[in-house]
Simulated scan of single mutants.
Amino acid sequence: MELLNHAAHLYHSFSHLSHSLSEAHDEMLPTAFHRATETVTHLRRKLPQHLATPRVAIVCGSGLGGLVDLVDAEGREEWKYEDVPGFPKSTVVGHAGKLVFGTMSETKIPVVLLVGRAHFYEGHSMDTVTFATRVCKVLGVETMLLTNAAGGLNSAYEVGDIVCLNDHLNLAGLVGFHPLRGQNEEDFGVRFPPLSDAYDLSLRQLAYTSWQQLRTQQPSNRKMHEGVYAFVAGPTYETRAECRMLSNLGADVVGMSTVPEIIVARHSGMRVLAFSLVTNKAVLDSVPKGDDPSLQGLSREQLAERLSRGVANHEEVLEAGKQAAIDMQGLVLRIVGQL
């Protein structure tokens, strides 16, 4: 009995020591604010004064890297992500992975563009996924304009349509993969930030005004909608059943990015405007059943073709981005010019 009591005492002492060491280790780690500040200091050593405090940050999603062409060529400064402290190397096709500083529109508004982003499905932590957003805050950014490629769940949406986001479903966050999980970064915001006002109403009004101006000058069949974005972890595209579930939950589009950045941007007090480019229509129909009489006698190839109808692929995403690039660029340029 004495031996057991001694063993229990040793275990308790070891557990207490381990917990204390863990707390001490956490306290020694630099905060996200400290790391973001170090990154900003590094960037500002090389930036001219008029670009050192950009007012607007623009995140360019899959196939939308062409937005960088909106930045004035004269005086533009660029870094590859791997050359920026704290930034991960971009691994996704269609994401150039570079940070671009410059001015935009006739009013020469200082902006920073994030051409490509880090995704949770690449194996990054939520802290890494949202680090660039925190850097934008420390830089002095007031407004974040985010774009992404997304699958259309709403049957009224067509490939190539643009969706101005007004709400989201954070599926990954609801099961624990939340960008604000852990000790709160008081230098950025409060412990429990509200998100019912995440999508700035005045910015959405400006988006509609800008879209109407664009359509008047450049007529097109492309439509702009307003809807809800469902964030899923990826990297697989959603099953038919998952698409039906998301649609029933109220989502209009679905994708694998943007929401963590929006949450951190709002936590930091930045205004948010976000757009999804519909690059494919999600398949909501149930899968063909094995006992369907209409399928009897078809070859394996014919059955595979039937099952694959509407299947999304990354090449389709990039192609839709190319086709919509001109309209998206015109819309963004008009919005930034009026901020």
Results as ranks from 00 to 15, higher is better:
residue 307 L to M: 11
residue 263 I to S: 01
residue 293 P to Q: 08
residue 263 I to D: 02
residue 298 L to I: 01
residue 236 T to G: 00
residue 254 V to T: 13
residue 262 I to N: 10
residue 297 G to Y: 02
residue 285 D to F: 00
residue 313 N to H: 14
residue 250 G to L: 13
residue 280 N to K: 11
residue 236 T to D: 12
residue 296 Q to I: 09
residue 236 T to F: 05
residue 287 V to Q: 09
residue 278 V to K: 03
residue 307 L to K: 12
residue 286 S to M: 11
residue 305 E to Q: 15
residue 239 T to V: 06
residue 302 Q to P: 02
residue 257 S to I: 02
residue 265 A to N: 04
residue 253 V to F: 02
residue 239 T to P: 06
residue 257 S to F: 09
residue 262 I to P: 02
residue 233 A to N: 09
residue 238 E to H: 08
residue 291 D to H: 11
residue 285 D to C: 08
residue 270 M to Q: 11
residue 234 G to W: 00
residue 239 T to Q: 04
residue 309 R to L: 14
residue 272 V to R: 03
residue 283 V to G: 06
residue 234 G to F: 03
residue 300 R to L: 15
residue 287 V to I: 11
residue 286 S to N: 08
residue 266 R to D: 04
residue 239 T to W: 03
residue 256 M to Q: 14
residue 306 R to E: 13
residue 300 R to I: 13
residue 281 K to Y: 00
residue 271 R to E: 11
residue 265 A to R: 05
residue 237 Y to C: 01
residue 303 L to W: 06
residue 255 G to F: 06
residue 254 V to M: 12
residue 282 A to P: 06
residue 268 S to K: 05
residue 275 F to R: 00
residue 269 G to K: 10
residue 292 D to E: 14
residue 240 R to G: 04
residue 274 A to I: 07
residue 262 I to W: 07
residue 279 T to H: 03
residue 248 N to I: 08
residue 312 A to V: 01
residue 289 K to H: 10
residue 244 R to F: 00
residue 259 V to D: 07
residue 246 L to Y: 15
residue 304 A to Y: 09
residue 301 E to W: 01
residue 286 S to Y: 05
residue 284 L to G: 09
residue 293 P to M: 02
residue 270 M to N: 08
residue 252 D to Q: 08
residue 301 E to F: 09
residue 241 A to L: 03
residue 260 P to A: 09
residue 293 P to G: 04
residue 267 H to N: 06
residue 306 R to G: 00
residue 271 R to N: 12
residue 289 K to E: 10
residue 271 R to G: 01
residue 255 G to W: 02
residue 262 I to A: 15
